[in-house]
């Protein structure tokens, strides 16, 4: 007896099945060169300018968590998708799906938070839409945002530009967002001090783009975490990546909690981090520059691009052995962003 193929929570995890879904269902129908790049934002050449354009939906549960809320997340996430493509984020649209019975004051808090995040990111929310569904038709509030940014015409970031010997830089600690949301869900029997890293990266990224013309590519390791971001870069570049485990910054509290719950830190979501691939001769300078910024204080060179094994991510472990870091499979935590 064969069961009908259905959407599982895993399809939304940002890992292997999410990738399959995009390729098998969406790319198969919406076949075009711009989408086929599968970058965080599409690059549109329009009337002599270069625009970055992206959209994202936010379904986090709970709506408020240490370090952020669904409103801030919905602005920062879209701003970051634009920023990692080298764009200056400019305009945002938002669509809210509200569940019947949603507390008016909660909505006000979220919208206020969206505006505050937009101001911090230097973007203006210029269009929007609302829908209300009957009780049970949604979980409180879902938000979809889209954003447009302007890209410097000289700039061309692409995984295809990545070369053997290039360095991998990470802007700070991993796993904070996932575990902050989990901690707030109340199904742990203890409190943690972990806060989400949710933040707009446009300023940090603008700063590094100013000091180096040899940044090949960037990605923000959100759903699917560092593992997914690196695997996508390896896949798109056709080269391998070797990461030094001891160079990857992790907060003590995050490490302990992940250890306790058996989570793979490399697969946990981040909402305020960026991975950069930079030419080796400029890597130190870029990472030093990043450390001078509030959001990049813990930047580190965590590894490098290698010729083999092609399309794969390797890890030199703390004890000196080596192993693969695979694309995440399965849900570690549902609805974290």
């Amino acid at each position: 007896m064969k069961e009908t193929k259905r959407i599982l929570l895993t399809h939304g995890s940002g890992g292997k099945l999410s990738g399959e879904l995009v390729r098998e269902v969406f790319l198969a129908e919406f076949d075009n060169d711009i989408l086929a790049e599968l970058t965080d934002a599409a690059i549109l050449k329009l009337a002599g300018t270069s625009l970055a354009f992206t959209t994202d939906s936010y379904v986090v549960n709970p709506l408020f968590f240490p370090g952020g809320d669904i409103g801030k997340l919905s602005i920062c996430g879209t701003v970051n998708d634009l920023a990692v493509m080298g764009a200056k984020p400019l305009f945002i649209s938002c669509a809210l799906i509200m569940e019947e019975g949603l507390d008016y004051s909660i909505l006000r808090r979220v919208v206020k938070s969206m505006q505050k995040a937009a101001e911090a990111a230097g973007v203006t929310i210029v269009a929007g839409d609302t829908r209300v569904v009957e009780k049970g038709g949604a979980d409180g509030l879902f938000i979809t945002t889209a954003g447009i940014g302007l890209v410097d015409k000289e700039l061309s970031l692409s995984a295809k530009k990545v070369k053997t010997g290039d360095k991998v830089i990470l802007s700070g600690t991993i796993g904070d967002h996932s575990l902050a949301v989990l901690g707030e869900r109340g199904n742990l029997d203890f409190r943690t001090e972990i806060e989400s890293d949710c933040a707009p990266l446009h300023d940090l990224i603008a700063r590094v783009l100013k000091v180096s013309r040899k940044i090949r590519f960037m990605r923000d390791p959100t759903r699917g975490g560092l593992a997914a971001a690196l695997n996508e870069i390896a896949r798109e570049s056709g080269l391998g990546i070797l990461i030094e485990e001891r160079s990857v910054p992790i907060k003590e509290a995050v490490k302990s909690l992940a250890e306790l719950l058996g989570f793979d830190l490399f697969s946990l979501a981040n909402e305020g981090k960026v991975v950069l691939i930079v030419a080796p001769e400029e890597a130190e300078r870029v990472s030093n520059e990043m450390r001078g910024h509030e959001l990049g204080k813990e930047s580190h060179i965590i590894g490098e691009i290698v010729a083999e094994p092609k399309g794969k991510v390797g890890l030199r472990t703390l004890v000196g052995g080596t192993r693969i870091v695979d694309m995440p499979v399965g849900e570690q935590l549902p609805r974290i962003c």
């Binding site: 890890l315 030199r316 472990t317 703390l318 004890v319 000196g320 052995g321 192993r323």
Partner: peptide
């Protein structure tokens, strides 16, 4: 054993 790549050591 696999997470730390012990067989390679």
């Amino acid at each position: 054993i696999f997470r730390y790549g012990l067989p390679t050591l």
